[in-house]
Design a binder for these strands. Structure first.
Length: 459
RNA sequence: GCCAGGAUGGCCGAACGGUAAGGCGCACGCCUGGAAAGCGUGUUCCCUUUCGGGAUUCUGGGUUCAAAUCCCAGUCCUGGCGCCA
């Protein structure tokens, strides 16, 4: 949430921000609401002041001799109360509406964010790992075909037990997943991250704290209710990213200056409805309803947040470097920023199989595996995340940042496609072998069941 | 799940229904040769240029002229019982 007094004092900046993002927010209406509320608030305060005076008098008017005066004062207090209730009720309604509307105002982009409303206005900063490629994109089999051939990814049976968009990993596939998780956690632990294993259900309140709610209710899985129904603060939802539980861990806390920067990493499953996302770009496990991710969350002092953003990006990139997977860094433009972010870098890994128009010259396509974002005090204000710069000073909002480090299925896609061999096996990246008991190649498994027999895939 | 007890400022901790003591910590000032002690001020949020005012005793309702205090509902914590991977 942006600061209301910032809005009041810098309406032009907010108006520009909203426009550059292509967001649908009426700033003038907000300003007017604020103005009207403040008027009523002042009026209510005045009335209440009068009433407090009268009330104090009543308390002192004891004994028989003051009986009459006392009764008169009580009458006066009653009259004031009636008037007060009217004014305050109206003020409360306005304040509720104002608060609600403020929750829908996106963050103000940092001045260094490229201007633009569309994806093509994102700026590519750099590429890594394209000098000596180990595959020719034209000959690579897509992961969804290879995964099925090797019987390490089973989408059909995932749909059977749960629904489309869910899948089983099996044998070396499942093992690769476990290996990647431990591998990533080890890297980030070296970088100073403290592990956290978060609860998976999160409250509406937590979802609001990080900025998922109220805007993106439709993307979440609700526990025990329909998304269309009204929700209460303590209703539960399945975690869409560990950012939610981990950032909200310290909600309404006051951290010490010495605690910062505080760096947490959290491995967790993530659940997203991904409503209406279908087609060739989403075949396989590129866009699914449940996936695992190691998330990096930072809590820092405001002055340091932009330096930390660069550091955070490096920390996330390190995973791809050690896996020796080619990737690029993208600076998102104003229109592509997420709701709560002031500045975001995307890390996109190269998946060579499916040739897309917006992919690199070498063929294949880019897959977003991480977004490193600085939210400044936007989430901190919503969630109540503060720190005390000096012991005697009052608490201030800190800055939060996060990045995936990384999203697992897409890394797996990149590995299955980039490390694919001509004989249809997959070489295990060297850095990952210690986590696979030294295994160097994934050769696949014999399929199970009569369907495989009928298809001639088994004798 | 049941029963009992609890929730007050950064922390500790008081308050017959009458308008939130006191202490600690921290900061600044006074005092001092310097320090300690002592004294003073400050140490939530909102409105207000200032002066000042309002709100705030876990949350939400209710009773009352007046609620930290009484009533109802909820959240969380503690203990006991029950259940249970």
């Amino acid at each position: 949430m942006i600061d209301r007094s910032y809005l009041r004092e810098n309406p032009e900046e907010v108006r520009d921000a909203v426009e550059n993002r292509g967001a649908d927010v009426d700033v003038d209406e907000l300003l007017e609401l604020d103005e009207r509320w403040r008027e009523l608030k002042a009026k209510g305060d005045e009335l209440r002041h009068e009433r407090n005076q009268v009330s104090k008098r009543i308390g002192k008017l004891t004994g028989k001799e003051n009986e009459e005066e006392r009764e008169a004062a009580i009458e006066e207090s009653k009259a004031l109360k009636a008037e007060l209730e009217e004014v305050e009720a109206e003020a409360a309604d306005l304040k509720d509406e104002l608060d609600e509307r403020m929750l829908e105002v996106p963050n103000v982009p940092h001045e260094t964010v490229p201007l633009g409303l569309e994806e093509r206005h994102n700026v590519e900063d750099r590429r890594w790992g394209f000098d000596d490629l180990r595959v020719d994109a034209d000959e690579v089999v897509p992961h969804y075909e290879l995964g099925e051939e090797l019987d390490i990814i089973d989408e059909g049976r995932g749909a059977k037990t749960t629904g489309s968009g869910f899948y089983f990993l099996k044998g070396d596939g499942a093992r690769l997943e476990h290996a990647l998780i431990q591998f990533m956690l080890d890297i980030h632990r070296e970088q100073g991250y403290v592990d956290v294993f978060p609860p998976v259900p999160v409250t509406s309140e937590a979802m609001r704290g990080t900025g998922q709610f109220p805007k993106f209710v439709d993307d979440a899985y609700r526990l025990g209710g329909s998304n269309d129904e009204e929700y209460a603060d303590d209703d539960l939802w399945l975690c869409p990213t560990a950012e939610v539980p981990v950032t909200n861990m310290y909600a309404d806390d006051i951290l010490l200056k010495e605690d910062l920067p505080l760096k947490h990493q959290a491995y967790s499953p993530n659940f997203r409805r991904e409503a209406g996302e279908h087609g060739t770009e989403t075949r396989g496990i590129v866009r699914v309803h449940q996936f695992n991710k190691v998330e990096l969350v930072n809590f820092v002092e405001p002055e340091e947040s932009y330096d930390r953003l660069e550091g955070l990006l490096e920390e996330a990139e390190e995973v791809l470097r050690r896996l020796e997977l080619p990737y690029r860094i993208l600076e998102l433009c104003t229109g592509d920023l997420t709701f709560a972010s002031a500045k975001t870098y995307d890390i996109e890994v190269w998946a060579p199989a499916d040739d897309m128009d917006d992919g690199p010259e070498e063929g294949g396509r880019w897959l977003e595996v991480s977004s490193a974002s600085n939210f400044e005090d936007f989430q901190a204000r919503r969630a109540g995340l503060r720190y005390r710069p000096e012991r005697h000073e009052s608490a201030e909002y800190l800055h939060t940042l996060n990045a995936s480090g990384l999203a697992l299925p897409r890394v797996m896609v990149a590995i299955l496609e980039y490390y694919q061999n001509e004989d249809g096996t997959v070489t295990v990246p060297e850095a990952l072998r210690p986590y696979m008991d030294g295994q160097e190649v994934i050769e696949g498994h014999e399929k199970v069941g009569e369907a495989a027999l009928g298809a001639g895939e088994r004798e």
